[in-house]
Nucleic acid binder design. Structure first.
Lengths: 206, 206
DNA sequence: GACGTCAGGATACGATCGTATCCTGACGTC
DNA sequence: GACGTCAGGATACGATCGTATCCTGACGTC
């Protein structure tokens, strides 16, 4: 046997470099060569790891989904719904990059059924994690038990995704951005059926 | 004076061709040559119309915003809130193309402040139109007058945008897609504060 | 320690890219 | 009707693209 290496680990590292590059310069700046430069390896090495450029980008999408899922999984146990939903918002550089990548992948997934399937599964995972949080709140009496947790979770995820996409195009500390965050907060409370007269904790699980 | 033509009309036509091409094959398939082929003119003619490829794509973004704004403007007078919010959903081929283009432009706008500004203005326009609809409902007594129309409109727009992005990656007539549409409906009613016991018309303005 | 094997890199290929430049022909003025 | 002007097209350029292919050297077995 000749030199043995962990191909999968290398693939993951290259996918990570791709995400760094794409978040900085856009997915349109991704090429086999530019990714190789970003990772400090030769274009030939990148070629050996992925059968095609398309497969390389798909692997980066998978990595993004993995990261998102693990972030939600590690948060679900000890944080409230607010913190949960904020995972989808571009409030710091890391989450901003993730939002940009998901949007870029969404655009490319049009006409690529397998990419769309991956994205749909990612949404489903986040919705399920959110629904689980809501069901716990229902058991604890913090949320009306008559509400459909799955439907409500879908609404909450869509809400934060919609605000996330819009926040991307506003300066982070602008008045308009703060106004949107306030509107998101009010919308979440309205969706949950919390009246303005409610007492803290205003959102379940916090 | 030599041959005189309406440059602006030609630019608009080429931008329209670009949108057709990009909705079909993705924004990454757009090149000066491919757009020229799509429009049935020579690449040289495209070059004469736009100083650069970047400007050409920016013009296509502007055209998309124009189309969206006029769609919302023509609808606001005689349709209900449901029909209004459905403008953002990929429920037919035309709206599906528009959603894809907005998402593709959103991805490219990262790091391009002027593009982001155009997108932010587009969101603002749609939110304002929605808020106007809500204020009318408040005057008509169909909606609680205490609610902040602007915040509520921001929430409704984000909600439909979030569901729109997710619907893109599901087969139009799948069970999951129908489930999402049902969840959207329930979320809109919850946001508006309409209880399940409410009598029709369930949403204002319809 | 000779040798096979494959990782990593170098090189090469045709295709396509954005754009600069030149050509040409139709329209306008006078 | 001669002529200037610019729209539209053709051509050309260097750069970069994805990928196929070849080279080389380190590691493994025996």
């Amino acid at each position: 046997m000749p030199k043995v290496v962990d191909r999968e680990a290398r693939r993951r590292a290259v996918a990570g470099g791709l995400l760094r590059l794409a978040a900085r310069d856009g997915l349109e700046a991704v090429s086999v060569r530019s990714v190789a430069v970003e990772c400090g390896i030769s274009p030939g090495a990148v070629q050996k790891l992925f059968p095609s450029k398309e497969d390389m980008i798909l692997r980066a999408l998978e990595l993004t989904e993995e990261r998102l899922a693990s972030r939600y999984a590690s948060l679900a146990d000890d944080a409230g719904l607010d913190a949960h939903l904020r995972q989808a918002l571009p409030l710091d550089e890391q989450r901003r990059e993730e939002v940009i990548m998901i949007i870029a992948f969404s655009a490319r997934a049009a006409g690529r059924p397998d990419w769309g399937k991956l994205l749909a599964e990612g949404y489903r995972t986040i919705q399920d994690a959110t629904a689980e949080l809501l069901r716990r709140a229902q058991r604890d009496g913090l949320l009306d038990a008559d509400r459909d947790a799955a439907d409500l979770a879908a609404g909450l995820v869509a809400l934060s995704d919609g605000f996330a996409a819009r926040l991307l195009h506003l300066p982070p500390d602008s008045a308009e951005a703060h106004g949107l965050l306030r509107a998101l907060d009010a919308s979440v409370r309205a969706l949950l059926g919390i009246t303005s007269a409610g007492t803290p904790p205003a959102t379940p699980g916090g």
